[in-house]
Amino acid sequence: MDANERAARNKKINHAIKIIILVALFICFIFPFILVVINVFKTKADITSNPLALIGSHGFTMKNFPEAMQKMDFWRSFGNSAIITICSTILTILFASMTAYVIVRNKWKACGALFGLMIASMVIPFQVLMIPLVSLYGGIFGILNHRATLIFMHVGFSLSMATFMFHGAINTNVPISLEEAATIDGCNRWQTYWQIVFPLLKPTIATVAIIDAMAFWNDYLLPSLVLARKELYTIPIATQVFYGTYSTDIGLVMAALLLAMLPILILYLFLQRYIVEGVTSGAVK
């Protein structure tokens, strides 16, 4: 066997080893999800007797779903989560991009101060703000238990990061000559922004939308502090409360967990490429 042949064979073996490791790791990564999926179609007794069996001895059942749906009030919490996520994301994008624009294009002191404060505030974790937030908005203003309050807070917390990202995008991707041309054609600042600058920010808008929407959808701590009434629960709160009440009814728990995951997994199936790209470009900035 000559050296070339040996090198080729080594390469093949190398490749095969990598694939085997990857597949093994992949199975480890999705094993918990597979477990939920195989147990959700079993009766409670079957799950307890053998959670690893593919099909329980009592056979295949769909009963867990309707019961879990009804008990966690799935559609209502889904609706709450959807409204809150969509409104917060849109508002964040609008306000953050506008703010970034005025900050980039003007060297005013107020802009510098705002931007500096925003950058500095990004290191503050939510746990430092949760107690004063509850005490201010619950104790003094008494406006907890409204979806609008939660949206307001979501927007407030995500503005810094979003403004920072739009700041970078406007700096690098929006040529100032384009804006000057618009001014000469008679656009004022407001028109220039909406007709020239905002459309050019599309890639960053997508990135911010993906990162923030995922964060809003999955957030538990802030919503749980703001929304204490059952009819306002978002999916994470509903899951937490459901588990607290029905933790022994393991079939229902499986169904509830799967239901809580499904919306975002279905979305991921279609938008997978955009989500992976968005998260990467958001993190690397």
């Binding site: 306000f95 953050a96 506008m98 703010t99 624009y101 005025v102 900050i103 005013w108 107020a110 802009c111 705002l114 404060l117 925003m118 505030s121 503050i124 430092v128 703000l129 004063p132 937030l133 201010l136 307001f152 807070m153 927007v155 407030g156 917390f157 503005l159 810094s160 403004t163 600042r189 407001w190 922004y193």
Partner: peptide, 20 residues
């Protein structure tokens, strides 16, 4: 400033700066 960053300033102050 108010036109582009007014809302942001108010919300950011109300949710982050003041509570801090």
């Amino acid at each position: 400033y108010m036109m582009f960053a007014g809302v942001t300033t108010v919300v950011f102050a109300a949710v982050v700066i003041v509570p801090f």
